[in-house]
Write a protein that binds this DNA or RNA. Structure first.
Lengths: 224, 224
DNA sequence: ACCTGAACACCGTTCAAGT
DNA sequence: ACCTGAACACCGTTCAAGT
């Protein structure tokens, strides 16, 4: 004999904004941002499309919202460590987060309504630089440059037509389509670098990051 | 009395791939990539939507095609000038081109079929570095870093919610919505830097670019 | 060879109606 | 307060048919 269960464990949770946004992110992660439609989102939430409009004004607000959630995933180091360690950890974390959500980087461009988490992130990073002794001028330089580098790298990484395992196959396939003798330098770089064992495009990130941090360390010293 | 004109000057040109792509770019420039639909493109070409499919397989091919056209607009300096001048000119030109086509940068991510112009561009840039004395290793570092910076900067610039004239209005409006006391560092940076006369976000580009070029010049010297 | 009309399976969103 | 059915004006694309 079964007991009557007034509230079964599988009972549908009431819809709310947080669940809406995290489900939207899950869809984009799994199937790309193109697969995120009001209809697909509603179905994943076990609800009709029109119900979504009770929690967000429109799809734009969903896109603004998920970008703000993604920003919240980036580690903000404690305020009491030195600026270089803090900037390094934030940059590495940002790259990891953007690699986890490859649809997010290009979306940054069109989003012009930064959410509270995004603004808080920017504020904290600027604060770390200022406390580290950066002038306002130098803070602007450093922040602009670091973010350009991080987003640009993430954009390139998201656009790579291969992951680390399929490098040889994809590279060989692409080069097979080259007209004979065309792109000699590209071919050289592929053969003698990209196709060598142990190659990992991701390793490039640390090189450029440290180069930037070195430069600002030198500038900071000569600044005061 | 009017003469009979068998071929009026306004006669519709026959559709071809080049005209299709350049019209597509004109639409995206004028109204954003979202306004570029098979139907809007057909209308601009004075043709029915289905006619487009005689010149391209689908919309993906149009997107691949216009990205390749945009790449072709980037200046490739002559092979006989020194690497630093060449890299500088290419970077400045790339930024100008991407600023002219703000929809293009985020599109780079999803395009995985580089066209012949794009491949030729990459090949030429790598060639300039190699001839400048860069090892394969250092070439990979430099190219990855320069492109990450260029694309990242273009992405940020495209996402700015203001152009140079409207900076004060937009910044003031945004800050007016901040809860009191929130984002103190962001506010400081805005008040004492962004809102100062003569501020131009674009100026940041040269600073970071020269910093990168300086670093590689030093690395190149110690490398040989 | 090049173009097209009609149709299909999708979109985001509005509106009026249900509980 | 929260959800929904039906409808509207859009998408990209296929197919069969026109010149």
């Amino acid at each position: 004999m079964t007991t009557r269960v007034p509230e079964p464990a599988t009972k549908r949770q009431p819809l709310n904004r947080d669940r809406l946004l995290s489900t939207a992110i899950a869809i984009a992660d799994a199937s790309g941002i193109g697969a995120l439609t009001m209809r697909s989102l509603a179905q994943a939430l076990d609800v009709k499309p029109m119900s979504l409009y009770h929690h967000v004004a429109n799809k734009e607000e969903i896109l603004d919202g998920i970008i703000d959630v993604v920003f919240g995933e980036i580690e903000l180091p404690p305020a009491d460590i030195d600026w270089r360690t803090a900037m390094r950890r934030r940059a590495v974390s940002a790259r990891q987060v953007l690699a986890r959500h490859p649809w997010a980087t290009p979306l940054m461009e069109s989003r012009r309504n930064p959410g509270p988490v995004t603004l808080g992130h920017h504020d904290a990073v600027i604060g770390i630089l200022r406390r580290g002794g950066f002038s306002i001028q130098l803070t602007a330089h450093a922040y602009s440059m670091l973010d350009a580098y991080i987003y640009g790298f993430a954009l390139q990484e998201a656009g790579l037509p291969f992951d680390n395992e399929t490098v040889p196959d994809v590279a060989q396939e692409m080069m097979a389509e080259f007209p004979t003798g065309a792109y000699p330098h590209l071919t050289e770089l592929a053969m003698e670098h990209v196709l060598q064992p142990g190659y990992d495009y991701g390793d490039e990130f640390d090189f450029g990051l440290d180069l930037i941090l070195d430069s600002f360390e030198a500038l900071l010293r000569s600044d005061r």
